[in-house]
Amino acid sequence: MSNGNQASDMSEGSSGDEYAVSVPEGRGRDRDADGEASTIIESRDLSVWYNDEQALQSVSMEIPEKRVTAMVGPSGCGKSTYLRSINRMNDLIDAARVEGEMLFNGKNVYDDDVDPVALRRRIGMVFQQPNPFPKSIYDNVAYGLRLQDRTENLDEKVEEALRKAALWDEVKDQLDQSGLDLSGGQQQRLCIARAIAVDPEVVLMDEPASALDPVATSKIEDLIDEMAEEFTVIIVTHNMQQAARISDKTAVFLTGGELVEFDDTDKVFENPENDRVEDYITGKFG
């Protein structure tokens, strides 16, 4: 273990070593950083309350298209809340209230004329616990397409999504078996296949690997790398090294729901502007 002054809420089942980031060689993504990506999602002074408790404080940030953006920070700092406010999953929580703007392709998703259901068909989501439906592998992947009545060439679309999720070779002979019979890592890749089968523009991932073993985790990380060719990926993680390995941009939230640093991943890890961020990523506090 590293130093003993880590706050208790940091120890989410991982050893402290993961947080004491000794920046690995060749970290960061190889994506050509020169071609500036356009912004696909932008929040302006976004605040979220649960009843009277504020979970996000005026967060403003511009998320680039077809890049991997990581969100890190101690637990309870509002990362999931931010993610859920992008595709309006917060609408399902009675206590949640949102203020400010969340622009998706320039349009505020909280405008009255935006249908949250239609929005979620363009912004897919992958959760912390793999949650395939108790249906066959095929039906899991076809779920979103069937919801939208996009059932022409269903077989090809299912195969394509499974290939993109690097799962096809493992399951192609058992498509009619239950998705729950797969291992945890395979289940999570099935959930990714389910999310990308409908060709969303953005894929939100809330700690997608935190319930998985290291081998499964590294497969998911490779997958995320490939996904950024086609989709915008926004990933919440509590694993600093993971953020450093896979993301182009990193946002650091600190307790209280404050966004304290948002920049290119290299910059955040090598030379953060905020001292508290430096302390946080080197594991001095949670």
């Binding site: 595709n87 929005l119 979620r120 949650n131 439906f133 979103g144 919801l147 999310a195």
Partner: peptide, 22 residues
């Protein structure tokens, strides 16, 4: 489990679709 509903809503299912399918 609520995770099943979340999965369905997250895919852009309406309430009726979620009730019926999940």
């Amino acid at each position: 489990p609520d995770s099943a509903r979340q999965a369905s809503y997250g895919m852009g299912a309406t309430r009726w679709q979620t009730v019926k399918n999940v």
